[in-house]
């Protein structure tokens, strides 16, 4: 897939890949962009165009990841973007899937106990995902913001104490388990769902699970390849001062 550039019309980018719409929304940009170019839309919205392009190109191409361009962006901008993706999962995507699952049960006239299991499994997944998001928001992001503040203030003396290399192991393991559950749910619906159920609703659920999985993958990639190395570098600089 070709790279999207600043001179391209925002509308054309969406025509090329409509899955970008929720990502664009995350920047506070809303549909109805007329014939404006991406550069113009970003300038109007006060968004760093290069950052915007790096994010949507990485999202569109699984093989393309502009780590260097992204690492040149302010850490706080990246954290703020990640927080918005959290909001999107919590306020939009998960509730949508949950409502589809409710519809799946409501539409099942005959008693299909498998569907109740789907609901139970999804609620369990949701609980774990939300706990993970919360832990990032209450522990990880504030820590990163603190490191950034210390690093940005030139007068900060050498810091040893406050820097506890926040445990990435735990963090990655959590991530991994939550992601595996999502993959399992998707696979169970695709391969093993049986009995009487509504085809349209079930396929809508699978679509949304694919979308969620892709979005989370993109989110994880930004954290692991961009954010973590940036933080590690600032920590190192602070220890050496």
């Amino acid at each position: 897939m070709k790279l999207i550039t600043a001179n391209e019309k925002m509308a054309d980018a969406v025509h090329g890949n409509y899955l970008l719409i929720p990502v664009i929304n995350r920047f506070g940009i809303r549909l109805g962009f007329g014939d404006q170019t991406i550069g113009a839309v970003c300038a109007n919205a006060g968004i760093d165009t290069d950052f915007f392009l790096a994010i949507i190109n990485a999202f569109s191409n699984e093989d393309y990841f502009p780590a260097k361009k992204l690492r040149a962006v302010n850490v706080l901008t990246i954290v703020s973007y990640l927080k918005k993706t959290h909001d999107y999962y919590r306020r939009t995507l998960i509730p949508v899937i949950e409502s589809y699952i409710a519809a799946l049960l409501a539409k099942s006239l005959k008693r299909n106990p498998g569907l109740r299991l789907v609901k139970k499994f999804f609620l369990e997944y949701k609980k774990e995902l939300f706990a993970h998001l919360r832990s990032e928001e209450t522990r990880t992001f504030p820590y990163i913001e603190m490191v950034y503040r210390l690093h940005a203030a030139p007068g900060t003396p050498r810091v040893r104490k406050d820097l506890r290399r926040y445990s990435m192991d735990v963090y990655e393991r959590e991530h991994h388990e939550v992601d595996e559950k999502l993959t399992d749910l998707k696979n169970i619906l695709i391969k093993y769902i049986g009995g009487e159920f509504d085809d349209a609703v079930c396929s809508a659920i699978v679509f949304e699970l694919f979308r969620l999985e892709k979005d989370i993958l993109d989110h994880t990639r930004i954290e692991n390849i961009v954010l973590m190395p940036m933080v590690a570098e600032m920590e190192k600089a602070l220890r050496l001062r």
């Binding site: 499994f121 388990e177 595996e180 559950k181 993959t183 399992d184 749910l185 696979n187 169970i188 391969k191």
Partner: peptide, 8 residues
């Protein structure tokens, strides 16, 4: 089966 987790 393509299923990894215990709950799956």
């Amino acid at each position: 089966l393509g299923i990894r987790t215990v709950s799956g």
